[in-house]
Computed example of a mutant assay.
Amino acid sequence: MPDPISSPQNPRIKALVRLQQKSAERRQQGLTIVEGLRELTIARAAGIAVPAVYVCPELLPAAGQQELRQALAADTEWFEVSRAVFEKVAYREGSDGVLALVRAPQRRLQDLPLPPNPLVLVLEAVEKPGNLGAVLRTADAAQADAVIVCDPRTDLYNPNAIRSSIGCVFTVPVVATTREELLGWCRQHGIRTYAAALTPQARPYTDYDFRGPTALVMGTEADGLTPELMQACDETIIIPMRGYIDSLNVSTATAVLAFEAVRQRQG
């Protein structure tokens, strides 16, 4: 094993910081950063390649190190780092002392394996990594078949999205695409699209049957869906609000709709 890294100026540490901070760097290298033993274990269970792992022995006890070694492939490089160095590259408080370099999956719409009756969650122009991560957790919990992001404003493997998803970005197939490609793909596969939007023609989501091939289409909290995508969808649905506010956080709204689809399919 290499000598412990004790300088924040180490070239490997500088490279990790660039990956953490720059989406262009992540896209160019096809790599991202996963922090946390739980998240990394989930990534490995999903078959994600881990070229290197950085461990702070002061934060990760021997038992945790042993668990981590068992989860990693034999060719994963292992580096020990000082606490000061780890705190330079860590991006969350209360970290457990594990940070890894992982290879981000590269998927296209045509690569998605679909069952005969798919349930797909669609996000348009998502820009907050926390919202993306929360929707991915919902997708994992509801066992959705894919999360498709149209014209994203954040990269899918932003470290903060990975953190917010608790690693579920690796358990659910996720793809970035354009609005036009999404609509053509849904038509090709016979998937009915339901736009969640606050419009006069929208009907309560409980009026609809989600037992067939279904795509639940969500917009941003600030602007909602673009008129082009909303008008191109087969139906427009709404979650009736009984209080003063007229909408929910996008991740909460997605969870409501996704689990209604799950309920109907189980029934």
Score class of each variant (00 low, 15 high):
Leu229Thr: 09
Arg27Met: 09
Ile5Cys: 06
Cys186Val: 09
Ala24Gln: 14
Glu260Asp: 08
Ala222Asn: 13
Thr236Met: 08
Pro227Cys: 09
Ile162Glu: 00
Leu136Asp: 02
Thr76Glu: 07
Leu19Asp: 02
Thr32Trp: 07
Val126Thr: 12
Arg211Asp: 08
Gly133Ile: 00
Leu19Arg: 05
Leu37Glu: 01
Ala63Cys: 12
Tyr244Leu: 14
Val53Asp: 00
Gly167Tyr: 03
Gly36Val: 08
Tyr208Leu: 06
Gly224Leu: 05
Glu228Gly: 13
Pro227Glu: 10
Thr254Tyr: 03
Ile33Gly: 01
Ala74Thr: 10
Gly212Glu: 07
Thr138Ile: 03
Ala134Tyr: 04
Arg83His: 08
Gly97Ile: 08
Val85Thr: 12
Arg192Thr: 15
Ala255Cys: 08
Asp207Asn: 13
Arg211Val: 12
Ala258Pro: 06
Asp207Val: 10
Gly97Tyr: 03
Gly64Trp: 04
Pro57Val: 03
Arg18Thr: 13
Pro61Phe: 12
Thr154Pro: 07
Val147Glu: 00
Arg163Asn: 10
Ala222Met: 11
Asp75Val: 09
Ala161Met: 01
Ala43Thr: 06
Val53Pro: 01
Val149Tyr: 00
Asn10Glu: 06
Thr236Arg: 12
Val149Pro: 00
Lys128Cys: 10
Asp155Met: 09
Leu40Phe: 02
Gly224Val: 07
Val149Asp: 00
Ile191Leu: 10
Asn160Phe: 10
Ile245Trp: 07
Lys14Thr: 10
Pro118Cys: 11
Glu58Ser: 15
Cys150Ser: 08
His189Ile: 09
Cys168Glu: 01
Arg107Trp: 02
Asp75Ile: 05
Pro227Gly: 14
Gly47Leu: 14
Pro118Asp: 02
Glu93His: 13
Leu123Ala: 05
Asn131Met: 07
Leu156Val: 07
Arg107Glu: 01
Val135Glu: 03
Arg153Glu: 09
Val147Gly: 01
Glu93Thr: 11
Ile237Cys: 02
Val122Gln: 03
Leu101Ala: 05
Val217Ser: 07
Gly212Leu: 06
Asp111Tyr: 07
Asp151Lys: 11
Pro2Ile: 05
Glu228Leu: 15
Arg107Asp: 03
Asp155Cys: 11
Val149Phe: 00
Asn117Ser: 15
Lys14Cys: 08
